[in-house]
Design a protein around this nucleic acid. Structure first.
Lengths: 96, 96
DNA sequence: TAAATTAGTTTATAATATAAACAAAATTTT
DNA sequence: AAAATTTTGTTTATATTATAAACTAATTTA
């Protein structure tokens, strides 16, 4: 009945990051910081976890002389998100 | 934009328990064990947390000579669940 | 050129989920 | 009827996780 929820996505900050990436083609570090109000350290750690899982691609470049870290969701990430939402529905839309 | 998710509900097992209680007037310890496949210890701890938060009432009685622990959701619990779901929607239904 | 800002990483800590070990009463087995 | 087993949980220990503090390195400003 209640399927397991992917622990990588069942985390407020990582879910917010993935959610942003489902809507915007590409999102960078500072946008995430502004929108989520999380600390840089926290964001950095969660990005690495999502990257290690193959859920996102991390693109490092330079923008007006500063380093820039940009993210894109992968197909694997999209699938994981969709599965997560599908499973989650069983919890939040309880039907008799 | 992304509102904080109540940490008490953003936990797979506690969410499953609350979800069950949103559907069934009263649910007992063993039903939770059967449905969730969680260990007794885990369930016991999570029940206490939900009780401490005032989200559920815990009714201890005897049923055919054995102790029986039964749960009911409180109004506060219902409100918390509804708020949680409302906030969660922003994460899982990302709109441009 | 010293101080401040930008952009992020690494490391430490605090909280949390989870299971293992334990307890107490009831039942079954020998 | 004593010993072993089952039922119904609780307490305690451990492993994982989320999060922030401390740090690094480059750039810009005073």
């Amino acid at each position: 009945m209640y399927k397991d929820l992917d622990p990588l996505l069942h985390s407020q900050l990582r879910l917010a990051i993935i959610s942003l990436l489902m809507v915007h083609e590409e999102v960078d570090f500072n946008q995430i910081k502004d929108i989520t109000n999380a600390t840089s350290g926290n964001i950095s750690v969660q990005i690495k976890k999502l990257q290690d899982a193959g859920y996102i691609d991390v693109i490092k470049s330079f923008k007006n002389n500063y380093q820039n870290t940009s993210l894109r969701i992968t197909n694997k990430g999209i699938k994981a998100f969709e599965d997560y939402v599908e499973n989650l529905k069983q919890y939040i839309k309880p039907a008799k």
